[in-house]
Write a protein that binds this DNA or RNA. Sequence first.
DNA 1: GCCTCGTGTTGGACGGCATTCAAGAGGAAC
DNA 2: GTTCCTCTTGAATGCCGTCCAACACGAGGC
Lengths: 188, 188
Amino acid sequence: MARTNRELDRDQKREEILRAARELFLEHGYEGTSMQRLAARVKVAPNTLYWYFADKDALLIGVMKRVVQAGLGEYERRRGTALDAQVRWMLGLFWETRTLIATVHNRAQVSSEVRAWHDTAHRMIEKAIEAELRSRGLANGHEVAAARIMSFIAEGVVAHQSSKAEQTRIVRLLMHLLRLDVDDGALR
Amino acid sequence: MARTNRELDRDQKREEILRAARELFLEHGYEGTSMQRLAARVKVAPNTLYWYFADKDALLIGVMKRVVQAGLGEYERRRGTALDAQVRWMLGLFWETRTLIATVHNRAQVSSEVRAWHDTAHRMIEKAIEAELRSRGLANGHEVAAARIMSFIAEGVVAHQSSKAEQTRIVRLLMHLLRLDVDDGALR
DNA sequence: GCCTCGTGTTGGACGGCATTCAAGAGGAAC
DNA sequence: GTTCCTCTTGAATGCCGTCCAACACGAGGC
């Protein structure tokens, strides 16, 4: 794709806008970032943004697609590493983007496009968690529900800004419970 | 309180505004409810609302205070009933007010007043969950972390509009894990 | 009965927001 | 050189939350 110079320019500009949007959303929040302000950052008239994106929600989806894709790519490289390192890494990633995550959940209430993207993103992330559980024999037979629970807990932890100490306590308890489940399975 | 007729009128009007705000927030969402619209519902000029409430977030907090207080009151009446009935009831309550819950989490990012109220509300709710866990000997020694996890899961379930079937699977898994923990404690 | 004063209420304005429209610039293709 | 599509823009629209200054009203003191 992007055969002609024209299409190349267009894609570059799109990416530039998305990069600026990600920075501003993270720094000032979604509602705190006006299209005006974003346009000024990219040195362009506000209306120009609407040639590249249908509306502000489309911009949010564009930003999030790249964030999640980058996250899943990084995960591929971390496959097979220690479980608690993976958990810590995932919580760190969620933490850095917590304002974006909160915004997606808010906009998903209103925009069906955001909701649709949010749902598929959850599916992808939870598939990855399920795979990790399965490869370790954890939550045997309940991998799907366990993955869902884990994603809810991860979102809760970052949304509520739990301290490092609390994060550790929560993760430890969860791991403790999942290990008991393994032992229980072994006995039966 | 509310000694004079004057103060009685004021309190009545305040309550009337809060009742209308709750209805509109639930029906059209927080952002979908303009001060204009709310004022029209109460048959009053938009500015009048600002005599009773500092700003829109104060209105949100006022609505939520009443919702949570009513919920905790109802909980007192349900103390000692079966655990799964309590869980189902709590999820139902969260479900009915899910748009309000989502809004609080969104505004808490921006408004320190909303954040402060949100934090104390969580504390109250989790204290109640802890008490239930303790009275049943569940999550022995990890009651605080377990209560936190349970509140995160409850919020996740309603925010992500899990189906009844999925809710059942998630609750069942969690209960299963907590019971294993009890058996483990008994053996040691 | 009148006046004062604090309690409510209002019209009108302000600045900011996302978004739209119609007009235009610029360059590639013929 | 002209056409035509891609991209950009200034200006406007209709919302929004909030503020200010003026005004109504009724209770309490005289």
